[in-house]
Design a protein around this nucleic acid. Structure first.
Lengths: 125, 125, 125, 125
DNA sequence: GTGGTCTAGACCACC
DNA sequence: GTGGTCTAGACCACA
């Protein structure tokens, strides 16, 4: 279903983001069982160990929790924790770099308005 | 003088950006000799090989050129090439990631206004 | 009724301890029939197989015995055997680990006094 | 040098404890480079991936940090963070179980005094 | 079936 | 040389 070839980011981190996305968009709801390590591995066409690693990160962030021998489930505050996680990554990793470049290029925030609208349009197609 | 531990980006790319910055902000003027690989390596507290790699990227982008046995110099259109390089990196790499996250976090462009002002203030200090 | 998620110990061993506890505290009396595998499984919200495994351990330790088709009963010396079992586990598994950590943390036995009192207080509530 | 066969705990967690131990006992000092993943793997007679996993945990706990391509180093507050880590593990995982058993066995804290002294004596030999 | 650990070995980016 | 990621495959404990 998914291929990761185009991105420089580690696959297991992309899967972390994918799971966060599903939870935030409420494709998977709170308390619900999420795909097993092996299931998701098949779907994502990666090794189970890779998914395992993603789930470990998500567990540390208290986005999911595990019942041994049964599976992984979305944690009580899973959705908000997922939002917090993505937000933290965004503010600490993406934003500073973006701002620095914008400063050098003498760009203003408003210069992003039009490309952002364009981006959102492309999502629909 | 500089620490790179906080960023996820490769050190040699951070140095590329640093050099672009110096050129764009005209800390280093056109045609002028820029620091030798060894000098910059000492200043940046990194391995000379790392600086070497950065200079190779900059040479490919025609931002600097080398006179063998003498040193590296800012290329004729160094400043504009630096701007172009940063802009390309920005539009192709940073922006798409940023937009995707902003969409998920239901953020608007205007939400960036305040953090950006904050960022620019911090530059002065 | 019970949740085991917080502990690192295997669920079936926690159930073994639970049964020992009931017997030692004489919640279940000697010679009496104890809950069936299914009953306890429902109460503990675990798989019957898990309780089954616990009962097998308890049978090996001669803490309980089974009358086929009828159920499990507390063995003649069930209470003392339960005490012996817990003591053995304690001295061979828990204590060495605890002592090693206490040594590293430069803790003294007396440092445990206050937390232990606290623990006993919490039992009443 | 080391074998882990006797313990039920995961090897990578035992290595985490080992590293904490070295730091706390100041065998390795703050800011200093610790053995590379491959070095420690050879010494511990385990797969490099296993040591890698231990170092990841230690990095999360801010006990060590990494300079890519150079190695791992003891973090600024590495020693105190190591203490905190061990203490947390101790209080949350070991203590409750110990206390519960002691309660059932009608033991008192003072009953641990003599075995603890014995344990410390055995360390010298 | 589930999660969890470990190995062996490969490959990459970086220093 | 260093860390970091990924695969393939094995084995275990647990439900």
């Amino acid at each position: 279903m998914m291929h990761f070839e185009n991105s420089t980011q580690a696959i297991y981190l992309q899967i972390v983001e994918y799971v966060c996305e599903q939870i935030i968009l409420e494709q998977w709801s709170i308390g619900e069982k999420i795909p097993s390590v092996r299931e998701l591995a098949v779907k994502m066409e990666v090794n189970p160990n890779t998914v395992m690693r993603s789930y470990e990160v998500l567990k540390n962030e208290q986005i999911i929790f595990d019942k041994r021998g049964i599976g992984y489930f979305i944690a009580p505050h899973g959705q908000s924790n997922a939002l917090i996680y993505l937000q933290q990554e965004f503010t600490s990793k993406s934003l500073p770099q973006v701002f620095k470049t914008m400063y050098l290029l003498k760009m203003d925030i408003t210069d992003l308005q039009q490309p952002f609208e364009q981006f959102k349009k492309n999502l629909d197609t």
